[in-house]
Design a protein around this nucleic acid. Sequence first.
DNA 1: TATCTTGTCGATACAGTGTATCGATCGCTG
DNA 2: CAGCGATCGATACACTGTATCGACAAGATA
Lengths: 238, 238
Amino acid sequence: MGGGTRPKRAGSVWERPEPPRPAPLSRDRIVGAALEIADADGLEAVSLRKVGAALGAGPMRLYGYVESKEELLDLMVDTVYGEMVAAGAIGGPWKEALRTLAARLRAAAGAHPWFLGLLGGRPHQGPHALELLEQALAALRASPGFGEIDAVLQAVRTVHAYVVGALWSEALELRAGQSESEWQAAQWPYLQRVLATGRFPTLAEVVERATHPSSEEAFGRGLEMVIAGIEGGLARAR
Amino acid sequence: MGGGTRPKRAGSVWERPEPPRPAPLSRDRIVGAALEIADADGLEAVSLRKVGAALGAGPMRLYGYVESKEELLDLMVDTVYGEMVAAGAIGGPWKEALRTLAARLRAAAGAHPWFLGLLGGRPHQGPHALELLEQALAALRASPGFGEIDAVLQAVRTVHAYVVGALWSEALELRAGQSESEWQAAQWPYLQRVLATGRFPTLAEVVERATHPSSEEAFGRGLEMVIAGIEGGLARAR
DNA sequence: TATCTTGTCGATACAGTGTATCGATCGCTG
DNA sequence: CAGCGATCGATACACTGTATCGACAAGATA
């Protein structure tokens, strides 16, 4: 009998070693190819066939290195976390640490537009993701004011939540207002007409009167608000 | 020549009327069927074939009512916004308005787990989504302290960002820690082993020592932090 | 009333997806 | 050199969104 039944290996990708030596492929190469495709053509362009083809292999070949497409996506995600970690350690006073964390996530989302889309998939528990989280938690733990571990967790969670949500909004606005011109051409007149009905007066006022700051500035202002809120919570608890 | 070429209709779903009278189908029925499937079996179970079958029709039938699957998803999303709007107007003092907005979104995400997954798709510009936004903006506009329209926008954006991000986290934690027991069974031991390596000491401390509050409480605490931060920004601007 | 037009319906088809199966093949070990 | 175990690739399956086009039914016109 040939190598037929691929045994369901136990454990997770992070622990299971790659197939041994004489392999012209490797997880690194596979993930690298997948990253290139995703960066260039978006997440929906990443198919096992295309990734395989980029490496001169058939789709089934990849199943020796990865158990499902989801695992490949997990590996892609953790590679991005790896880039964030490689950008330098997160530390210093807690505010600075949180700002750095936010900036890292924003930079990653900017460099890999598909990254956000993978937030909804599976929890990010790869080694690099854990390391980034560890660094952030440790920086806060070491800062005065965060006596309770709960306060540390709460703060990091809140900032993380804000950042994720803000990056979503940013991505949507970018899409609606800039590229994909056909879509924009169709949607903008629609919005104009809807606002002209007078049913959404405040919204109309916002659209025409608000000074629309750059994405980065809006992001930063919101972040400072969140940080200020955390600080207030600290002061109250002390 | 038969009715062949379906002409590319201009404009957006929201404005284009349905096909006229003797139609055994309707957008309402189609969206309703799609909602049922999504609620029951998740978003990835929503296919034009299944939706059509649920209504005794073939997949192509739906293209008379909707131009693409994406438009169907848009309609589903706006239906959920409709439920939020129907739950009562958003108003009162600005803090209350923001809390109500947050609660509405959280309730919607709870009732329709797939809703969050559609955040990344296209901007939510359906009539009900706009109405919800309008109500929130108007409530803040009418509150003392929000002199500038920019402050209103910034506040709503920040709260919205936090809520979206927090709901994502909540959904992930729910998935990782509760249902889908097979996945949990595989991931929990993995985490245990990783933490046992000692490479993530703060993380380990969090896992074993933090009092893990209920999702709702964690959500609420973060929200109050964000609101406090907004209040601080207001006081500073005044 | 008979014909023509118009628009809708359903079947079929196509390109693409993730992945299960399994025969062939290749490299290492004895 | 023989045998074997692992790996590889082709094939196949069920499923997706949607383009195409023949058949049909209702409304308008003569």
